[in-house]
């Protein structure tokens, strides 16, 4: 298919809507049936419901399928380098703490090449909201193995089955110190929106894992079927639990059990607040 700037999708959003004028095929490049779109929609509707306009927020993404999501926003939106969405967002937030900063990126970007930045941002409790579209594979790059691919599954770089155990992102974020952690299937837009609202209310680092199966790569290589079949496959495994400790939030396609819910919501003072206090100390000592 030829992708062109000229092919516009219907756009009846009001002018200050985050997606206004942005839904053309050069920006919205995702496979039909992919849940990246629902994650984008969930964020934008939260921004709209909060009455936020582009001067209030910034969107950052890294590289990959979800990396292209920043291009859908009419806002200060930044398509950074591979793995570096979190430090880019940190720079924005630190230099302008009034901004509501979102990172929307994939599991390969945030947890392989960008893994170190993720754990340190959690530790600092910097006030940014990170949404990870977890599809368990490198989609855009050609279906390679990710740090979220299940053991035994087939990818372009694990033709005999993956031999590495995957990260449990919820448990990782909680252990690293994130003050808000949730996981939802990407089709559960209402719960996802609730979490995004909670993330914006949390005065610290918030992490939301969005399960967004990749039928184009993962589905094809593992005989899981098309978009709808893969959503059915996911839905059968999802178990929503209340008050589940983050380290018990099982993530196992093999056991057919993926625990979703809100696992950490323990607000503590954010990093830019600490920096404000540090300045006061420094200026008193002069």
């Amino acid at each position: 298919m030829t992708v062109s700037n000229d092919v516009s999708l219907p756009d009846d959003y009001p002018e200050d809507h985050p997606l206004h004028g942005r839904l053309n095929l050069n920006r919205f490049i995702f496979c039909a049936g992919c849940l990246i779109g629902t994650a984008i929609t969930a964020i934008t509707s939260c921004l709209v419901e909060r009455g936020l306009t582009p001067k209030d927020y910034a969107i950052v993404s890294g590289i990959g399928c979800t990396g292209r999501s920043s291009g859908c926003f009419k806002a200060p939106a930044f398509h950074a380098t591979h793995g570096r969405a979190i430090p880019f967002a940190s720079g924005l937030k630190l230099a302008n703490p009034d901004l509501e900063v979102f990172v929307l990126s994939g599991d390969g970007d945030l947890f392989a090449i960008g893994g170190n930045h993720f754990i340190h941002a959690c530790r600092r409790n910097i006030e940014i909201n990170v949404l990870c579209n977890n599809n368990g594979i490198y989609g855009m790059t050609g279906g390679q193995c990710a740090p979220t691919t299940s053991i035994g599954d087939f990818t372009s770089t694990s033709p005999y089955g993956n031999i590495e155990p995957p990260f449990n992102l919820v448990s990782l974020a909680a252990a690293a110190g994130a003050s808000y952690v949730a996981r939802w299937p990407g089709y559960d837009v209402l719960r996802l929106k609730g979490s995004i609202m909670a993330a914006m209310d949390n005065p610290g680092f918030s992490f939301i894992e969005v399960l967004a199966p990749c039928f184009t790569q993962y589905g094809r290589k593992n005989n899981l079927g098309d978009a709808v079949k893969m959503l059915e496959w996911l839905r059968k495994q999802v178990v929503i639990e209340k008050n589940c400790p983050p380290h018990d939030a099982e993530y196992s396609h093999k056991n057919g059990r993926i625990v979703c819910g809100e696992f950490v919501n323990s607000p503590r003072e954010g990093f830019t607040q600490k920096i404000k206090q540090l300045r006061e100390t420094a200026q008193k000592k002069r």
């Binding site: 950052v60 200060p76 930044f78 950074a80 380098t81 793995g83 570096r84 979190i86 430090p87 880019f88 967002a89 940190s90 720079g91 924005l92 630190l94 230099a95 302008n96 901004l99 170190n116 930045h117 340190h120 920096i275 540090l278 300045r279 100390t281 420094a282 200026q283 002069r286």
Partner: peptide, 27 residues
């Protein structure tokens, strides 16, 4: 901090310079 500025020691040089680009884009 004395001049209302921001100093952060990042986890590596990659984060350091990327954050500089981000900060630059706030002006």
């Amino acid at each position: 901090p004395q001049v209302d500025g921001t100093f952060v020691q990042f986890e590596d040089e990659l984060a350091s310079i990327v954050a500089v680009v981000g900060a630059s884009y706030t002006g």
